[in-house]
Design a protein around this nucleic acid. Structure first.
Lengths: 224, 224
DNA sequence: AGTCTTCCCTAACAAGTGTTTGGTAGATTA
DNA sequence: TAATCTACCAAACACTTGTTAGGGAAGACT
């Protein structure tokens, strides 16, 4: 929201926009160390998660990092590119975990259990990123820059739907449910946990996964 | 986020702050018709829900309403008071519905079913307000002005926990589950539906409620 | 007829926004 | 020792933000 500078629509080589003119890509500061970047991104992610992306000013991030607003631009192109880097690294690691699960070619029920458990582990590791993803992804998908969010979402949906359909075909999941509703049900129940989950809160990710799976698979009612 | 004007901290009777000095309470425009207010609030709620509160400028709301930004202040004190009115009227109607259910003194399972069904009806009626509530309430509870959000949340939690505990005591709900986890499970699964639910999408609120209840109560696995 | 009331517009304001530019202290390298 | 590089600061910039003040057109009421 904003994007100052840039006068009209097409002309770009005008006056103030000098950018750079040396190395390879866009501008991206001089040569910041990757470790410091990660530190700052972790801080930014926490602030984004707590206050919301739009409500977070670069000055607040800088405050939390013990520096001034302008100094952030030594490490990052823009506030938005911080957000992008946070979300894309999270999604990359998430799919790393998912792919490992999917390559094991388990049965549908075991696949579902493994995916859910893996999801809770990711929530444990990337709590802030997950919270940001949930709150902001809906607006971001409209922007071309965040195309990978849409891609990921579609792959996500396909993965889950396939698993559920396989389960129905193999008679381990009920066949009297709207499968898309079931998908959203499973998906949402898992990820909203990021909004209240705090690491070190007595429950390990695996424990939470076990209980959630127990409820999702068998329900909360007593069997009669 | 902002709050311009108001120079220092305590002095208030300075220069520009004339406010008014006539009727009774704060300032609140002259005498806008309640119907027009409701119209504008509905529009504002849609924009808030779609873009997020902080990302929504008063000019965007005014655009959607076919008027200019300043004109909104004939009807409302501030952008924040629009948000407050949207959320408080939603919560009032929600508790209206809940209280009707609770006063029927049904059994725990029937209470749960009725509460969930009522929740989906509210999502149907106040889709935008629910979406706003979910995204923003976490930041808002910090502000004294939104104290009623905290109150409502606590009453919500108490209502659900009591119902679940009663169910466990009467042996209709499983006793091997962490009841607080079960609470969050039920609560979240219901309300996140607002993020994808669109009225007229083939499913009535009652239908969705039925399917959700079926999953929550009996699980998605086939009974063996 | 005139006065009031309702509802909006025009035009500005002060504060806050993301971002840029130039500089500089301290470590690293030549 | 001088040159270079790293990571930051200080100060500004163009723009956007919520909000206000004054005014005016159209109808309602006296």
């Amino acid at each position: 929201m904003s994007k100052p500078k840039q006068s009209s629509t097409t002309t770009e080589q005008s006056s103030t926009t000098k950018k750079q003119g040396s190395t390879t890509k866009k501008k991206a500061a001089v040569s910041p160390s990757p470790e410091r970047r990660r530190e700052l991104l972790a801080i930014a992610a926490d602030v984004f998660a707590e206050q919301g992306y739009n409500a977070t000013t670069v000055r607040k991030i800088a405050d939390a990092a013990g520096m001034l607003a302008g100094s952030l631009y030594y490490h990052f192109d823009s506030k938005e590119s911080m957000l992008e880097e946070i979300l894309s690294t999270f999604l990359a690691e998430l799919w790393d975990g998912y792919d490992t699960v999917l390559q094991s070619r388990l049965g549908p029920r075991e696949t579902l259990e493994a995916l859910v458990t893996e999801s809770f582990r990711e929530i444990d590791r990337h709590r802030s990123a997950v919270a940001i993803y949930q709150k902001e992804s809906k607006h971001l998908v409209a922007q071309a820059r965040f195309q990978y969010l849409t891609d990921s979402q579609q792959r996500f949906e396909k993965t889950w739907l396939t698993t559920l359909e396989r389960g129905v075909a193999e008679r381990v999941f009920r066949d009297d449910l709207d499968i898309r509703l079931a998908y959203r049900f499973v998906r949402d129940t898992v990820w909203v946990a990021a909004s209240w989950y705090r690491p070190g809160g007595g429950h390990s990710p695996e424990e939470i996964a076990r209980q959630y799976l127990s409820m999702v698979l068998d329900g909360i009612a007593v069997r009669t």
